[in-house]
């Protein structure tokens, strides 16, 4: 009976591909393209009886991060690329699914969700179940570097190797793909979030000033870089002095930021280096010729491509729209589910 109901309701639903990222969640609707791009943040309000109520999701909730009174918490339910808070993730998914369906109720779409490589069975199950309880009829999982490679239009079905580095908010995925399969993959739990934390720590240590997560992210986006670019930019940062407790302004330079995030950048470079070491020689020869493809929000960090170029002596290519490569790839897999079914995992 439940199956019949699912089929009937599925008829009224649009199939979705979701890039459930630590920083941003993107939703691709079959036949329409990317319909939603929101930060993965949920604001939850506790009511008098101790129950929780979802107050805001996405961009609206992100504005509340660190600015909430006692009874409201703005949560980022994803951590290191996996679900950290099951119920909140479910509420967020439900909200996004309803939003792309124009708030229609009773929809049971088929969903493809991207997950980092090398996540545990428990983590996989968590993703599947939260999507199912958010209203999905069928859930397919696809590995992020594979989705990124499909999204970047790489020739993954050919017997030549493609090396993809996807730098997301929580994880950095390095993978070598050939013949629609992953030859080697490694997931480093370092990404944009860790860089934000490093910037917060740096400002705290050097200037005795506390800044919030979103301020740190702003600093990284505006003046952060991985390799000296020549011009030394400056940015005004507002925060609270640790000693006097008074809000104040300081100026921070791009060189300082580079120093602050150098540890995280080094971890990414190290991950790439290890992947290169582990690649079979024939495939390594292809990589020398074609180089490495960078995707994900981290690819937008200034000078990261140049740094990798210097460190690996390989040509580095940044894809056109690094932020949406993963969701575009899973969307493509969704459009041709029969073709790409083999790239999904269970």
């Amino acid at each position: 009976m439940a199956k019949i109901l699912d089929t009937v309701l599925g008829y009224f639903s649009n199939d979705l591909a979701i890039d459930l990222g630590t920083a941003n969640t993107l939703v691709y609707v079959k036949g329409r393209g990317i319909m939603l791009r929101e930060p993965s943040v949920v604001a939850v309000k506790k009511d008098a009886r101790g129950g929780n109520k979802v107050l805001a999701v996405g961009a609206e909730a992100k504005r509340m991060l660190g600015r909430t009174p006692g009874n409201i918490v703005a949560i980022r339910p994803m951590k290191d690329g996996v679900i950290a808070d099951f119920e909140v993730t479910e509420a967020m998914l439900r909200h996004f699914i309803a939003k792309v369906h124009n708030s229609r109720r009773l929809v049971r779409p088929r969903i493809i969700i991207c997950v980092p490589t090398g996540i545990t069975q428990v983590e996989k199950r968590a993703v599947k179940e939260s999507a199912q309880s958010a209203g999905a009829r069928e859930v397919y999982l696809i590995e992020e570097p594979m989705a990124a490679a499909i999204g970047a239009n790489l020739p993954i079905t050919e017997p030549t190797s493609n090396m993809v580095v996807d730098i997301g908010g929580g994880t950095t995925e390095v993978a070598v793909i050939s013949l629609s399969g992953i030859v080697y993959s490694k997931s480093v739990r370092v990404g944009g979030d860790k860089m934000d934390e490093a910037i917060m720590q740096y400002v705290k240590r050097k200037y005795n000033m506390l800044i919030g997560e979103s301020t740190a992210e702003q600093i990284k986006i505006q003046i952060g870089s991985a390799y000296p670019t020549g011009d030394n930019e400056e940015m005004e940062v507002k925060g609270r002095d640790l000693v006097s407790g008074i809000p104040q302004n300081i100026m921070i330079t791009s060189e300082e930021v580079r120093k602050a995030i150098s540890e995280q950048v080094e971890a990414i470079v190290q991950g790439v280096r290890i992947a290169l070491e582990q690649t079979p020689p024939e495939l390594a020869a292809d990589i020398v010729d074609r180089g490495i493809v960078l995707t994900g929000g981290g690819a937008l960090l200034k000078g990261l491509d140049q740094l990798l170029r210097e460190e690996t002596h390989l040509p580095i290519v940044v894809v056109e729209d690094p932020l949406s490569a993963v969701v575009l790839g899973s969307g493509k897999a969704l459009e041709h589910i029969d073709l790409y079914k083999e790239v999904t995992i269970d």
Partner: peptide
């Protein structure tokens, strides 16, 4: 030249 994605990136660089 290699596949379009790579060629594009090379030319841009």
């Amino acid at each position: 030249l290699p596949h379009a994605v790579y060629s594009k990136g090379f030319i841009r660089n």
